[in-house]
């Protein structure tokens, strides 16, 4: 433990020096990390999603689409069925707790076109609810149950939001930041 403290002291440098990257590299331009498929998607997405109120941006090396919670199912169906995008594979559905709001993140992939996109929807922390996408991809079933279990997000019109990985009678939402980790019980 003393060695750890010693090493920590040595490694600590003022925050102003290592602002961005430990290697001292410059933060790249937002566009620079997109590969060619991403750049093609950048031109396609505004046309595909022209009917919806979305904001399209770039998240590291992926195109990201931020939608309103109510539009989630319609946007996802559009992305899945449109001939230019064909996102037929839901890679991952996760929930992130930014304390003022919760964010539901959908990572999509197309098996034919082999491109990827991220769809995000923000819901409030007090009453987090948004429509379920089980009608679009059957594989989102358990992800949504897990999101409900760990974060308390209610997915409307989901076939059955029973607890998936926590035991019956568990109180609280352990995924949230407000759930203390250090306050554990032995049994």
């Amino acid at each position: 433990m003393a060695y750890l403290a010693f090493r920590t002291k040595l490694c600590r440098t003022p925050r102003s020096v290592e602002k961005n990257n430990n290697n001292g590299e410059q933060t790249p331009e937002p566009n620079a990390l997109l590969d060619e498929k991403g750049r093609l998607l950048e031109t396609l997405l505004p046309n595909v999603l022209s009917a919806f109120d979305v904001s399209i941006g770039i998240s590291h090396d992926l195109m990201e689409v931020i939608v309103e919670p109510a539009d989630v199912v319609a946007v996802c169906e559009n992305l899945k069925n449109h001939s230019e995008t064909l996102f037929n594979y839901l890679t991952c559905l996760s929930v992130v707790d930014y304390v003022e709001h919760l964010q539901v993140v959908y990572h999509l992939y197309s098996t034919q076109k082999k491109h990827k996109v991220v769809v995000k929807a923000n819901v409030s922390s007090e009453e987090p609810s948004l429509p379920s996408v089980t009608s679009v991809w059957k594989g989102s079933d358990w992800y949504e149950r897990e999101g409900h279990d760990l974060f308390g997000v209610i997915f409307e019109s989901h076939p059955g939001l029973a607890p998936l990985i926590l035991y019956e009678g568990f109180e609280g939402y352990p995924g949230r930041k407000s759930f203390p980790l250090h306050d554990y019980k032995e049994w």
Partner: peptide
């Protein structure tokens, strides 16, 4: 790299 890494703020998905 440092023992206590501080990556830049952001998000990434890796397969």
């Amino acid at each position: 790299t440092r023992f206590i890494l501080r990556p830049p703020a952001g998000e990434v998905y890796v397969r």
